[in-house]
Amino acid sequence: MDFGLIIAPHAIIDNKRIISPAIIEVRDGIITGISQTIPKKTTGKTVRLDDVCLMPGFTNAHCHLELTSLGPLEAHQFVPWLQEIVLAKTEQTLSDKIDGIKNGIEKLTRSGVTTIVDHVSFDTPVSAFANAPTRIISFGEVLGLLPEKGQHTYEALKNSKTAATHDFHISPHAIYSVTAALLQQVFNEESSPYSIHLAENAEERLYLNHQDSLFWDFVLQSYPELTNRRHDQARSSVSYLQNHNISLHDSLLIHANDVDDQDMTVMQSWQNICVVHCPGSFDFFGHPHFPFEEYQKLGIKIALGTDSITSNTCLDYQHEIRLFTQRYPQLDFFDLLPMLTTNALESIGVHDTGKLAIGYRADLIGFKTTNDCFDPKELILQPPINPANRACGSTY
């Protein structure tokens, strides 16, 4: 977005306050000035938005764009869903995957997303993200319960990281989906940030407890040779990490639904973490509880994500906001806004995106206002506007 000036009746500044009117100076895609009066000397294009409140674009803190072509799956229980998605992925072509990435980005852009934190498989071509209209931050998922399979995915992801022209990190998919040895290797060789599925449901906990479970049955059906090769026993995913002296500083913890007080005490000791909650996926699986209030009391940051469309009803970030605000109607807008913009990014070391502030990227969206009195929590559920063309959803 290379304008000289953007003039709007309202703007949300620093994710803390609303100014009216707002004059935003932009140079080379970076916000260089914010004022309430038009400067005497200007260069470049001036865009006037007579009926818009400007704000930073949303950050989708967790997604699997490559699964978009698979659509919502039928199973709503975790293990049957795993069985269904494993089969669906075997039938997915490379063309399906690339088309899904593009379609997923377009869907999210239409709901005001300008930054996507995406999880990618070892065989996803990084070229599929070239020229995307949003900022993409990829986390390559290391997974494989057989040693040779896991090592293969890890080596392939190292190549992807080298080839990527966008932000690309490598992280274990989850505690339960890689061998203990490879899990330790990845944490030893890859520096933070990480983005890891953690404590999503009771099946994960039962598996690590070495108790009978549907997930363990699924593992044995898939890999009979693992009968006597389980992870070290642990009370939970969080305690497993603690037992192995692994701390998830500067990282995203995806889901973190099934945690207790002991887990949260450990999590509180990890520096600069953010729990990513996916309301649509949470409802899809019918999880009993997300400890939002407990995390708030402990000062653990929260961000929102969509997850993939395979465990949701749609790929629409505003749908996630709507579900979340319906569940927590008492939440103040300026407490909510960082969950939609900066919380996840700051935990993974990104400090130039997610605010309408000097020095930040001008990844802005707007919402149409009919008068000077408006509720910003209601406003952000309206169709967003791209200040560049007054319509979100550009294609590439």
Results as ranks from 00 to 15, higher is better:
1 M>Q: 14
5 L>F: 09
6 I>R: 03
9 P>E: 15
11 A>D: 07
16 K>G: 09
19 I>M: 12
26 V>Y: 10
27 R>P: 07
36 Q>T: 07
36 Q>P: 02
38 I>L: 13
40 K>M: 13
40 K>T: 14
46 T>R: 07
47 V>M: 10
47 V>N: 04
49 L>P: 04
49 L>K: 09
52 V>Y: 14
66 E>K: 02
68 T>I: 05
69 S>V: 04
75 A>K: 00
81 W>P: 00
83 Q>I: 08
84 E>K: 02
89 K>F: 08
90 T>L: 07
91 E>H: 13
98 I>K: 09
99 D>Q: 08
101 I>E: 00
105 I>F: 03
106 E>V: 08
106 E>C: 12
107 K>C: 12
111 S>M: 10
117 V>R: 09
118 D>T: 00
119 H>Y: 08
126 V>C: 06
126 V>S: 05
131 N>Q: 15
134 T>W: 12
136 I>F: 03
139 F>K: 01
140 G>H: 13
146 L>M: 15
152 H>F: 15
165 T>K: 14
170 I>E: 10
172 P>G: 07
174 A>I: 03
184 Q>L: 01
184 Q>R: 05
187 F>C: 08
188 N>M: 14
189 E>S: 11
195 S>C: 02
195 S>H: 03
196 I>H: 06
197 H>T: 01
197 H>Y: 05
200 E>D: 00
200 E>P: 01
201 N>P: 02
201 N>K: 00
202 A>N: 09
203 E>P: 00
212 D>E: 15
213 S>H: 01
213 S>N: 02
218 F>W: 08
219 V>E: 11
231 H>N: 03
233 Q>F: 04
233 Q>Y: 04
233 Q>M: 08
236 S>Q: 10
237 S>R: 04
238 V>N: 04
239 S>D: 10
243 N>K: 14
250 D>V: 00
253 L>Y: 00
256 A>S: 11
256 A>G: 02
257 N>W: 08
259 V>Q: 06
267 M>A: 05
268 Q>W: 07
269 S>F: 01
271 Q>V: 04
273 I>L: 03
277 H>L: 04
279 P>D: 13
282 F>H: 04
288 P>M: 12
291 P>E: 02
294 E>A: 15
294 E>S: 14
297 K>C: 12
302 I>T: 02
304 L>K: 10
310 T>E: 02
310 T>F: 00
311 S>W: 01
311 S>R: 03
314 C>T: 15
317 Y>C: 09
319 H>S: 15
320 E>D: 12
322 R>E: 15
323 L>V: 06
327 R>Q: 13
330 Q>D: 13
332 D>L: 10
334 F>V: 09
336 L>N: 00
347 S>N: 02
348 I>W: 06
350 V>C: 03
352 D>M: 07
357 A>C: 09
359 G>Y: 10
360 Y>F: 12
365 I>M: 11
365 I>H: 11
366 G>W: 07
367 F>Y: 14
367 F>T: 07
367 F>D: 08
368 K>H: 15
369 T>M: 11
371 N>E: 07
372 D>S: 12
375 D>C: 00
375 D>T: 00
383 P>L: 09
384 P>E: 06
388 A>G: 08
388 A>V: 09
388 A>C: 10
